[in-house]
């Protein structure tokens, strides 16, 4: 059972502190919705968690075992259990949708091709792309690419899925399809950390909401309460602004 605990995590880009002590727990089955103004460090947190940016200090444990990001073996083991979907999809441009989903299980994990292929086809149908499996990324719309990216992450059978503003780069009419896929995952009990600006979506699917500002978590709570009456000034201002902006 995955249990991700983050304690007092600090991170910096070229000496400039971007995360100044983040603490957060994601328990098995949790769907944590993370919101916050842009530049507050949400993406950076996810990048640190998957080992793309070494933390300056702090503790990350998975099921109680500390992850030492300086050790390759630790990072490898972590990445076997954690998957991430990026805002810009980042699909491999030289591979079809199906190849994108299959490449890591087959070439990196060495699983049998036929078995993986069946799973990949199944995953792509579940995200509504059974018709476009042999298309290359540049032949797909943003929404379709993002759904391939989700399928690619799921093909790794992660215990925890990290989603970084997966709908921000999409045209409005394409957002719904992607959110539906994530709703389905939440309903199926997937443990997720979802960074998003879609407030109503977060309110619906998240079991917990955390708000980041200036590199740390400023408020945390259950969605219904958080959105009804935010406790801190910053959260009030942010939620107020977003709500008027959106509806």
């Amino acid at each position: 059972m995955p249990d991700l605990a983050i304690a007092d995590l600090h991170a910096a880009y070229a000496g400039r502190t971007v995360l100044g002590g983040v603490s957060l727990n994601v328990a098995s089955g949790d769907v944590v919705g993370m919101i916050g103004p842009s530049g507050s460090g949400k993406s950076t947190l996810l990048r640190v968690l998957v080992g793309l940016l070494p933390p300056v200090s702090g503790l990350v444990t998975l099921d109680g075992a500390t992850v030492d990001y300086r050790r390759k073996a630790d990072v490898r083991a972590l990445r076997d259990r954690l998957a991430i979907v990026f805002q810009q999809y980042n699909l491999f441009q030289n591979m079809t949708a199906l190849e994108n989903v299959m490449v890591a299980p087959v070439r990196i994990r060495g699983r049998p091709r036929t078995e993986v292929r069946a799973e990949a086809i199944d995953l792509l149908s579940r995200v509504g792309l059974s018709e476009r499996m042999n298309a290359y990324p540049d032949q797909l719309s943003g929404g379709q690419q993002q759904r391939v990216a989700i399928a690619r992450a799921l093909a790794l059978k992660p215990e925890i899925l990290l989603l970084d503003e997966v709908t921000s780069a999409l045209d409005p009419e394409l957002v719904g399809d992607v959110l539906d896929v994530i709703r389905g995952l939440a309903a199926a009990g997937m443990t997720m950390l979802i960074v998003s600006h879609e407030m109503s979506f977060i309110r619906d699917v998240a079991s917990r909401v955390v708000m980041m500002a200036d590199g740390s978590i400023v408020e945390e709570g259950r969605p219904a309460e958080f959105f009804r009456e935010p406790q801190t000034e910053r959260a009030r201002a942010f939620v107020g602004r977003i709500r008027w902006h959106r509806d």
């Binding site: 998957v50 080992g51 793309l52 490898r76 990445r79 076997d80 998957a83 991430i84 990026f86 810009q88 980042n90 699909l91 491999f92 441009q93 490449v103 890591a104 070439r107 990196i108 994990r109 690619r152 790794l156």
Partner: peptide
């Protein structure tokens, strides 16, 4: 660079 990142998080080695 995002192509490298995508590969890294799926445990691709440098050579892979």
């Amino acid at each position: 660079p995002n192509q490298w990142h995508s590969a890294a998080v799926a445990n691709f080695s440098f050579m892979q």
